[in-house]
């Protein structure tokens, strides 16, 4: 298992390095051989030092199908974000706010899923994750315009985002 973590970390670091240095030469496709050598060297060093940091409890996020779902997820997320931005822009001009902190229950099992959902909620204007209850998996969300005081699901706060995140991480 440590070897597998090491290999995954090295490959991820190398891919990131190659993306950053794309266009440096023409030796190997669009990279110069110096960049390749340095990239491999530093990826090995980073893999040795941080093999248990990047990879958590399991390797489920290595599966490319989950990455495809994550990229598709950007679509509904940006739609949600654009709608909320226009809504908040109108509220800034009119000054018409109705704030409050509500508690929303979630059904996500993994830590990564909770992190992604709370980050998505925070990134959507009008909703801001203030705290999380780690045992019961509930989020405390500051909402600029409280429509429901006791939300049953995360549907009323974040739309269909929870469904997408569950598909990507579980």
């Amino acid at each position: 298992m440590p070897l597998l973590n090491f290999i995954v970390t090295v490959i991820a670091c190398l891919i990131f390095y190659l993306i950053l240095t794309a266009g440096s030469g023409t030796d190997i496709l669009i990279w110069s051989w110096q960049q390749f050598a340095v990239g491999i060297l530093f990826s090995l060093v980073v893999g040795m030092v941080g093999r248990n940091v990047l990879v958590g409890k399991d390797l489920r996020m290595v599966n490319p199908r989950r990455w495809v779902v994550l990229i598709v997820y950007l679509g509904p997320f940006f739609l949600e974000m654009a709608k909320a931005n226009i809504d908040v822009a109108i509220r800034i001009i009119t000054g018409n706010i109705n704030p409050g902190i509500v508690k929303i229950p979630t059904n996500l099992k993994t830590d990564l899923g909770i992190t992604m959902l709370s980050n998505s909620i925070t990134l959507t204007p009008g909703t801001l994750t203030v705290d999380v209850d780690e045992k019961t998996r509930e989020l405390y969300v500051h909402w600029l315009d409280v429509k429901v005081k006791e939300p049953e699901t995360s549907e009323s706060v974040s739309g269909s985002l929870e469904k997408w995140i569950r598909r990507a991480t579980e």
């Binding site: 706010i97 109705n98 704030p99 409050g100 902190i101 509500v102 508690k103 709370s118 980050n119 998505s120 925070t122 990134l123 801001l128 994750t129 203030v130 705290d131 405390y140 500051h142 409280v146 005081k149």
Partner: peptide
């Protein structure tokens, strides 16, 4: 969002309550 969340959490922990809040669970 990580930074915004950290600021909000620190504010609530140090006792700053939301003004004009209709509900504070």
């Amino acid at each position: 969002p990580t930074g915004a969340h950290a600021i909000a959490r620190a504010a609530h922990r140090s006792g700053i309550m939301p003004i004009r809040a209709v509900v504070d669970r």
